[in-house]
Write a protein that binds this DNA or RNA. Structure first.
Length: 467
RNA sequence: GGCGAGUUGGCGGAGUGGUUACGCAGCGGAUUGCAAAUCCGUGUACAGGAGUUCGAUUCUCCUACUCGCCUCCA
């Protein structure tokens, strides 16, 4: 069996991955808060952990891997967005707006991530469907002396958990010295974080032992991972920016609620997406969405390829130059595998991924397969990596009418060229070629003959108009 | 202020205690009516300093710089 090695940020080193139960490998990844289109930064963990999911399925068998990624559909950002919609004239009740907003955002998210070639996880729980489990977990934490109720809130007592700060390598006192934590009168310690907080009458809320309210941000992941994967599981993933405080708080909650279980064995964190060397973030306003890029005409596979060309633990700069290069490579690969039946997935690619998801090395192997002309292997491997190109690569083949049409033109062009070589007059050849290029076709002329192919921009109507 | 990550050839970007990354661009050539595409050839880089070592880009320490987290953000 392939030995997988992963960098465990909990221990800050690469470790051999050994699942708790090889017949049920379990992974939890923090998903999006659903109030807006996913931006490119949201997409990176999706692609990174999709590659890991595919690798795990390959090694342990597709039916032996459970992958959970949540939707955070209760959150103050969502409430704020809904209120601003009310302010803009939306007359529906706040909760109706929120339901519509979160539903729509989840649909967008699915569409955009599907376009990036990401497989759907085994479970995609919505936080609001797990309130009962969250309340139960909070009650347990209070009973064990790790949390306390105060003024309608329930707070986690960080001083009750000596390991607090271990994941991110921080000491509580150092963080307080940073003096940027919210100090609320009802907190015993400034670092204590909210498990439950009161809601106003029109805000989303649920009855609880502490009154009408809603959960804090962190408890949902602890409750959902426990419910769907059990008290201990193999991999917990997410963006590096979630390491603190979110993951630190998850560990504190889960380990205190289920002492001895261990929670997640491996913690994996992907680095951020940058734009021009700066972090991409909503507060800086330099972000763009996956949908923006798709609408600009970049195929999802190109975005995915660019993502995979940088190792997940390094910051990735998005540039159009990279996208152009990626598109060129994929175009070459796809043209080689046209009409090819996929064979075996390349072993060197699996080995590269097994070494802490060295996707860049995997791409280097794709170039090797391409230069070797190993079409069947390349096809299978591209498919495995989620870079199969969908219908685009096969458009000319899929559409017989287009193929027949272009065959006519290629015959005509070949005849004209034959004549031109004799007469030394290429004006007609150049005119035909120009016309085909303008209509989005690709023209290849070699000694052997003329070949006309449809690119994804090919437009038969345009060709007719130019005739 | 605390914590962490990084600094590789023109560019992107892996990796390694001593031997070619890979890709893009460039250059030279083949081929071509011209192009495109393709093919062949071509690049000896690892922030600076000190140390360990027979030998360091790779290990250790220091310095500089960049970036991130500590506050909503993936």
């Amino acid at each position: 069996m392939t030995e997988i090695r992963l960098y465990n940020s909990r221990l800050r080193k690469k470790e051999i991955f050994a699942p708790i139960e090889p017949e049920n490998v379990r992974m939890y990844v923090c998903g999006p808060t659903v109030y807006d289109r996913a931006h490119l930064g949201n997409a990176r963990p999706v692609v990174v952990f999709d590659v890991l999911y595919r690798l795990l399925r390959h090694v342990y068998g597709a039916e032996h891997v459970t992958y959970v990624r949540n939707f955070t559909d209760v959150d103050d950002k969502i409430n704020a967005r809904a209120r601003s919609m009310q302010g803009a004239g939306d007359t529906r009740p706040l909760n109706a707006i929120i339901r519509a907003l979160t539903d729509a955002t989840i649909d967008w998210y699915h569409g955009d991530m599907d376009a990036l070639g990401a497989l759907r996880p085994s479970h995609e729980p919505r936080a609001t469907e797990f309130i009962v489990q969250m309340v139960a977990m909070i009650e347990g934490l209070i009973a064990r002396g790790h949390a306390y109720a105060a003024e309608g809130h329930v707070l986690f007592d960080v001083r009750s958990y000596p390991e607090y700060g271990a994941l991110s390598g921080r000491a509580i006192d150092d963080m307080i010295a940073g003096a940027r934590v919210e100090v609320a009168p009802y907190k015993r310690d400034p670092m204590d974080f909210v498990l439950w907080k009161p809601s106003s009458a029109d805000e989303p809320g649920w009855d609880s032992p502490w009154g009408w309210g809603r959960p804090g941000w962190h408890i949902e992941c602890s409750a959902m991972s426990h419910d769907l994967l059990g008290p201990s599981f193999d991999i917990h993933g997410g963006g590096i920016d979630l390491q603190f405080p979110h993951h630190e708080n998850e560990i504190a909650q889960s380990c205190c609620a289920h002492p001895g279980a261990g929670f997640a064995n491996f913690w994996l964190h992907n680095e951020r997406v940058q734009v021009d060397g700066k972090k991409m973030s909503k507060s800086l306003g330099n972000f763009f969405t996956v949908r923006d890029l798709l609408d600009q005409g970049w195929p999802g596979e190109v975005i995915r390829f660019v993502m995979l060309s940088t190792h997940y633990r390094k910051p990735m700069d998005w540039t159009e130059e990279k996208a152009r290069v990626a598109e060129k490579h994929l175009g070459s690969f796809w043209s080689l595998i046209r009409d090819t039946k996929p064979g075996q997935v390349d072993a060197a690619v699996i080995a590269a991924l097994a070494d802490d998801l060295n996707t860049h090395q995997a791409i280097a192997e794709l170039h090797r397969l391409y230069s070797e002309g190993a079409a069947a292997c390349l096809a299978a491997t591209l498919n495995f990596l989620g870079l199969q190109g969908g219908d685009r690569a096969h458009r000319a083949d899929a559409d017989g009418a287009i193929r027949d049409l272009l065959a006519q033109y290629s015959d005509g062009l070949a005849k004209a060229r034959e004549l031109a070589i004799k007469n030394k007059d290429f004006t007609e050849v150049d005119r035909l070629k120009r016309m085909l290029l303008d209509a989005g076709a690709e023209v290849r002329m070699t000694k052997e003959g003329v070949e006309v192919l449809a690119t994804q921009d090919f437009d038969p109507a345009k060709l007719e108009a130019l005739k």
